[in-house]
Write a protein that binds this DNA or RNA. Structure first.
Length: 668
DNA sequence: ACGATTTTCAGCATC
DNA sequence: TGAAAATCGT
């Protein structure tokens, strides 16, 4: 059996890594190619900062997901003491902003117990404030425009002044109404967690100096994924001293579509003339051929910074291109290959991964893997909890913590059904508005209750009474116990159970609810109060505590960033899928190519790229062509397998020709 | 107020 | 095609 092309990473740092770890003299940008050991550099650098006299609690390491933050903290804990790792600020930009606002809420015009609204809640508010009877496109456009104004750091007034088209004016007005509503809710949205601290730091010198003192060094991971606001916040926090390290890779920028601004890499060189740039170009992950393919593909993109990855590994196996009839055939073949290779190599299932462009592509693969009895794990899939359940329970807790949180009120009041319908809610909202009260406070008011019809009035009163009771109970117990109480007394637990007849499903759901209570008991250990807890919960995504275990990993290319596998299958590499239709039409091929590049560089030992000649799309069979990106691969490193599309087409032509010839013969 | 039926939409998805 | 949202009907 041939040994793997890859080996364990070396124990000592290479010269560039070492330089990046030891350079503390000023602002530093580390351009870390795929598989070049950037996480190692960040963790080693934290250890170096501690050695050189920085206090742990004044070092912040910013990641893009909570999962990454958790893993980073773990790795630092192993490298240095666990105690010091606990003191470090390892979190996302948003969590840092939340911490900032919890301390500085007065300066931000927020009262204690303010709420962080999630994306669904804030979108619902935008919809509610928009002119009625609009198409979905309209809301999406408005959300986009409001989001852009926020990203540019404009206040509603500034956005109104800057509006240059009727559309922008509409959006600016909506933005104004939206912020006003957030204010009355005593709430902020995700963007505000970055934008408000940024604005406060710019406008308030005392605050600025205090926070620059509070944080002595900042490390930012996945820097190419930062947006404009995050960059501004970073700049305010580090000040002219520039005590920071940004680590990123423009070739792995795949989130521009949701606001990331890879230009931030360039901006850094302008805003910090003394910026030092270090490139990490040695790849420790991929075989020689895989890396050559990756380099060849990404070489077709424009670059802010030139870099060329190299590897000390051997060539390894050629990259295989698998030509399949359709996506079902493709899935079956891959499932069979995985079963075969696992037996042959005695490798664990978790060495194998299948990556694709869109979530819907997972369906055929799942089916084939199930049939072949291959254990698999769908990353990003809501494996454990129904998200609706979590959000419902969270809404109850939010409303207990902040009675002004109308978004939470509207959610909690409607599940379980308690005979308070849209008409009653509309009346209640109008009454609340005229008296300048939040929904819950209006519901508590006897005066308001009297203005409603008898039956709805008493239902509303009963609902309000529950919350008075829970708020009082909450002062005596932790969040876990309070949740158990709320689940019982609200009838929510019963409501969830009622929907299920199957005793097994009931048991599973009951176990899930108990798990939630346990989780909250554990999470509340810090006992910072209910609102801190619910706000932190708003920032974490419950599916991200997934443990893939020993299973084949199915993932979108986006979700695969940062992961690596010995054997990777890249499926559906056809024009229209990768690059995606919309991207082709709008000429945005660069980001699609980077996506392909990210996929290629996930593989350590073997890479298989597959394409289908046809697949079903919107119910209709569609003929497909292999992706234009395949032509960018170096021929010497790839091997075609399966039905060659050109050969197949030719055979078909011949078949039909001879068919016609025969008919012609008969007609003679 | 709620379940049944029709319409709509189809890319990635963090905090 | 198939899931989710919007609308209809009692």
């Amino acid at each position: 059996m041939p040994g793997p092309a890859t080996g364990a990473p070396p124990l000592s740092l290479n010269p560039e890594q070492r330089a990046a770890v030891h350079y503390l003299g000023g602002p530093l940008l580390v351009l870390a190619g795929a598989g070049s050991g950037k996480t190692r550099v960040i963790t080693e650098k934290i250890a170096e900062l501690l050695r050189s006299g920085h206090q742990a609690e004044r070092i912040a390491a910013i990641t893009f997901t909570n999962k990454a933050a958790r893993e980073m903290r773990e790795r630092v804990g192993k490298l240095i003491s666990k105690d010091a790792a606990e003191k470090l600020l390892v979190c996302t930009f948003h969590a840092l902003g939340l911490r900032f606002l919890s301390i500085e809420h007065a300066a931000a015009g927020l009262r204690r117990g303010f709420t962080v609204l999630d994306a669904d809640d804030s979108f619902a508010i935008l919809k509610d404030l928009s002119p009625k009877a609009q198409k979905n496109d309209y809301y999406d456009l408005m959300r986009q425009l409001v989001g852009r104004a926020k990203d540019e750091g404009l206040t509603p007034d500034e956005a109104l002044a800057a509006a240059r088209s009727p559309r922008e004016l509409q959006a600016a007005e909506l933005y104004q109404a939206y912020q006003k509503r957030l204010h009355t809710f005593n709430a902020v949205d995700f963007d505000d967690l970055i934008a408000i601290p940024d604005r406060l730091l710019r406008e308030n010198e005392e605050l600025r100096l205090r926070w620059r003192e509070r944080l002595s060094y900042l490390l930012v991971d996945e820097y190419q994924d930062t947006n404009r606001t995050q960059y501004r916040l970073l700049k305010e926090l580090v000040g002219p001293r520039g005590g920071f390290t940004a680590v990123g890779d423009d070739d792995q920028s795949i989130y521009a579509w949701r606001g990331a601004n890879p230009e931030n890499l360039n901006t850094l060189t302008v805003d910090f003339p003394n910026l030092k740039v270090i490139k990490l170009e040695q790849n420790y992950r991929c075989s020689g051929r895989i890396l050559r393919c990756a380099n060849a593909v990404i070489g077709n993109n424009p670059h802010l910074f030139e870099k060329r990855l190299w590897s000390a590994h051997g060539d390894g196996e050629p990259i295989r291109i698998l030509n399949c009839r359709d996506d079902t055939h493709e899935a079956e073949r891959i499932a069979a290959e995985i079963v075969f290779r696992r037996d042959q190599q005695k490798a664990p299932w978790s060495d194998f991964s299948i990556l694709y462009r869109g979530n819907h592509q997972a369906r055929a693969l799942e089916q084939a893997l199930r049939l072949a009895r291959v254990p698999y794990h769908l990353s990003g899939g809501q494996a454990f909890f129904d998200r609706a359940e979590i959000r419902d329970v969270l809404a109850y807790l939010r409303l207990i913590a902040n009675p002004d949180d109308d978004a939470a009120f509207l959610r909690a009041v409607q599940v379980p059904k308690r005979e308070i319908g849209t008409i009653t809610l509309e009346k209640l909202a109008t009454l609340a508005g005229s008296k300048n009260l939040s929904m819950l406070k209006a519901a508590e008011s006897v005066e308001v209750q009297k203005q409603l019809a008898a039956r709805p009035g008493s239902q509303v009163a009963e609902f309000a009474q529950l919350f008075r009771h829970w708020r009082e109970a909450g002062s005596r117990m932790g969040a876990g116990d309070l949740t158990a109480l709320v689940l019982q007394e609200s009838g929510y637990a019963q409501h969830l159970m009622a929907g299920l007849k199957d005793p097994e499903a009931r048991a599973r759901r009951d176990e899930n609810l108990q798990e939630l209570v346990r989780f909250l008991r554990e999470a509340d250990k810090g006992k910072d109060g209910l609102s801190t807890l619910t706000n932190q919960l708003a920032l974490i995504n419950f599916s991200d505590r997934d443990d893939p275990g020993n299973a084949v990993r199915l993932s979108t290319l986006h979700a695969a960033k940062g992961l690596e596998f010995r054997h990777v299958w890249l499926v559906g590499v056809e024009d229209g899928t990768l690059p995606h239709h919309g991207a082709i039409e709008e000429g945005r091929l660069d980001e699609e190519r980077r996506l392909f590049y990210v996929g290629i560089t996930r593989a350590k030992d073997t890479l298989t790229i597959s394409t289908s000649l046809q697949k079903k799309r919107f119910g209709e069979m569609e003929r497909l062509k292999p992706s234009r990106f395949l032509r960018e691969l170096p021929e010497a490193d790839v091997r075609q397998e399966g039905d060659d599309p050109e050969k197949e087409a030719e055979e078909k032509r011949e078949r039909s020709l001879s068919h016609f010839a025969r008919i012609a013969d008969l007609l003679k």
